[in-house]
């Protein structure tokens, strides 16, 4: 079931067209990574979903409720942590929690659970303004999960967290997803995203550049082939690249690393390479990581 459906949203700030016909969905229990360089429109998209910014066209549906028509029902499913932690820095950590708990009439029991989650202990009695970035982030996360949301937006949630904090947050995100919470999150820490996201969306200049399945599907785009290479192979590989079947290749003496532009070209490319009856001694799928995919996608965009 879709917990979020974004359909063709557009947004401009003055002459700057920030979001261009952006569409995607998020399933219940899915962790969707939202990837893109600074200024690509990630935060604006998240703000549109949280109803802080109004899109000029298109629709946003949360749990089947149109945000523009059934705002209250739609937002009752959502909790958002967008950009820097939105806290009252003149209040203590505990006061912040109590203030935000009062917004949705959170029970004392739930509040105590979340207080424990923050792991801030006595620091909760200190003013939030005196917190380190990591402590603020923990507190803001605690505020976000207070109402046990079914849809959570996390914008750069790993910022400022120490390794222990990152580990705990990763576990928490996975646990929330297991419990059925759909999570849309962005981060510049691609390796962390790779570890937890079930799907990634790559966005640039307000447009979705690519929607890829994480890990498994990414891996099979690159293969290392072992065979006796010949002189004419280079021109054949260049031709495949020109035709758009290969994204890239690196040829060495007895091995060839190829990166497919799409998994559907796999059979055709390998058959073409081995067309003259040469013997394939081995084939090793390359474990491509999200970082290589990121540079691939944005390199493609630049080209």
């Amino acid at each position: 079931m879709n917990i979020l459906k974004v359909d063709n949203i557009n947004k401009s700030f003055g002459k700057l067209h920030v979001l261009k016909n952006l569409s995607f969905t998020l399933e219940t229990g899915e962790i969707l990574g939202f990837i893109g360089p600074n200024g690509s429109g990630k935060s604006t998209t998240m703000k549109c979903i949280a109803n802080l910014v109004f899109p000029e066209s298109g629709t946003v549906e949360i749990a089947g409720h149109d945000l523009s028509k059934e705002r209250s029902q739609a937002l009752s499913h959502l909790s958002a942590l967008i950009e820097a932690p939105g806290l009252y820095f003149n209040l203590t950590g505990m006061e912040n929690l109590k203030v935000f708990a009062s917004l949705r009439q959170i029970s004392r029991k739930r509040l105590e659970e979340v207080i424990e989650f923050t792991g801030l202990g006595h620091a909760l009695k200190k003013k939030a303004g005196a917190y380190s970035m990591g402590m603020r982030q923990r507190l803001a996360l605690a505020v976000a999960i207070l109402p046990k949301p079914t849809f959570l937006i996390l914008d750069e949630p790993f910022n400022g967290l120490d390794p222990q904090g990152v580990f705990e947050l990763r576990s928490m995100i996975k646990r929330l997803a297991r419990e059925g919470c759909g999570i849309l999150f962005s981060s510049h820490q691609l390796l962390e995203m790779e570890k937890i996201s079930s799907r990634n969306i790559f966005i640039k200049d307000g447009e979705i550049v690519s929607q890829e399945m994480a890990q498994t599907d990414v891996a099979v785009l690159s293969y290392k082939l072992y065979f006796d290479r010949q002189e004419q192979d280079l021109s054949m590989l260049s031709k495949l690249k020109t035709e758009g079947l290969l994204l890239d290749f690196q040829a060495e003496e007895s091995e060839l690393l190829i990166t497919l532009s799409d998994i559907k070209h796999c059979t055709h490319v390998i058959t073409t390479i081995l067309a003259d009856g040469r013997e394939l001694r081995g084939i090793v799928p390359q474990t491509a990581n999200i970082e290589s995919l990121y540079s691939h996608i944005y390199e493609k965009e630049i080209l």
């Binding site: 802080l52 209250s72 959502l78 967008i82 950009e83 009252y88």
Partner: peptide, 18 residues
């Protein structure tokens, strides 16, 4: 402005309240 300056408005105005 107290909501806007610290960024808490992002939580306040994304509540299910008009």
């Amino acid at each position: 402005s107290t909501d806007t300056e610290g960024g808490a408005y992002k939580i306040l105005y994304s509540q299910p309240q008009k």
